[in-house]
Amino acid sequence: MVKIGISVSYLVWLASLLLPLPGLAQSSSVVDQLTQQFSQQIEAELTQWQQLTGIEIVSKQIQPRVPTGARSLTPCPTEITIESSSGMPFGNLQRRAQCIEEGWSLFIRAKVTVTAKLPVAARALKRGEIIGQQDIVFQSQVLSGNDRQIIGQVSELLGRQVKRQIRRHRVIQVNQLTAPMWVNLGDKVIIEARSNGFYANMPGEALESGGEGQGIRVKNLSSGKVIIAYPVAKGRVATIF
């Protein structure tokens, strides 16, 4: 009987070692809850970003980092509220998480590594150059939190003028480009006039420099009148009567 009692006690003791302590089980639940919800939120933000930009995500890795203080928190009985952000959903992220019911809040972090297929410069592009199809190739690039203004579509690059030098095989940012200056001060231009199916063109002289969509003063050399016209191509402006 003594041997049986000892055996039973040993089994109970051994089983107790295999089971987590109540406090640790609770702590693990909080950490898991935060990790799971934050990962799901980042996944949703990446999907939305991809849909809005049209950029193809080749691969992604989400590594949530929950502070050790979360181990002492009481698990939230409902979904934890995690703030959203207007920034890019990749790079080093930090968000505030809170459980209203239990009255606690903390900051959680995540390292999100995203590789995307992007149009990049096929060669070094100098200031003043106009980007053509031959200047663009596609490559997989690892994005960082600083890539807030990347251009992901070739259509947004063609015909644009380089404002700041673009290095070969680097992602292209919006602030590196500008609308091309189709017309410069003093240029001889062709003025195109359109109205209800009527079309005419006449020689003119640019009194201002301008790019696509910019209204500039142009002198009609046929009539001598100064009009407002809009550059539509190199050496050509349009006006509507």
Rank of each mutant, 00 (worst) to 15 (best):
K3T: 12
I4R: 12
V12M: 11
W13Q: 10
A15N: 10
S16D: 07
L18F: 11
G23R: 04
G23F: 14
G23N: 11
Q26E: 11
S27M: 00
S28L: 14
S29L: 11
S29K: 15
Q37T: 09
Q40K: 15
E43Y: 07
E43P: 02
A44T: 12
T47P: 00
T53Q: 08
E56V: 09
S59F: 04
S59W: 01
G69K: 09
G69T: 13
R71P: 00
R71S: 09
R71M: 10
L73P: 08
C76L: 10
C76V: 10
T78G: 05
E79T: 12
E79C: 01
I80G: 01
S85I: 08
S86V: 06
G87W: 01
P89C: 05
G91H: 10
L93C: 03
Q94F: 06
A97R: 07
Q98V: 12
C99R: 04
C99H: 01
I100D: 14
E101N: 08
E101K: 11
E102Y: 08
W104M: 09
W104E: 04
T113S: 15
V114W: 04
V120P: 00
V120E: 01
A121T: 05
A124V: 15
L125E: 06
E129R: 02
E129L: 00
Q134W: 05
V137R: 03
Q139M: 15
S140M: 07
L143K: 05
S144P: 04
N146S: 14
N146K: 13
D147M: 04
I151Y: 02
V154R: 09
E156M: 11
L158G: 01
G159S: 04
R160Q: 07
K163I: 00
H169Y: 15
V183W: 02
N184D: 10
G186C: 10
V189L: 05
E192G: 03
A193M: 11
A193V: 14
A193T: 15
N196S: 13
F198I: 13
N201I: 05
P203I: 05
G211R: 03
E212H: 13
R217V: 01
V218D: 01
S223W: 05
S223C: 07
G224S: 05
A229C: 08
A229N: 06
P231A: 06
V232D: 07
A233R: 11
A233W: 03
A238K: 15
A238C: 06
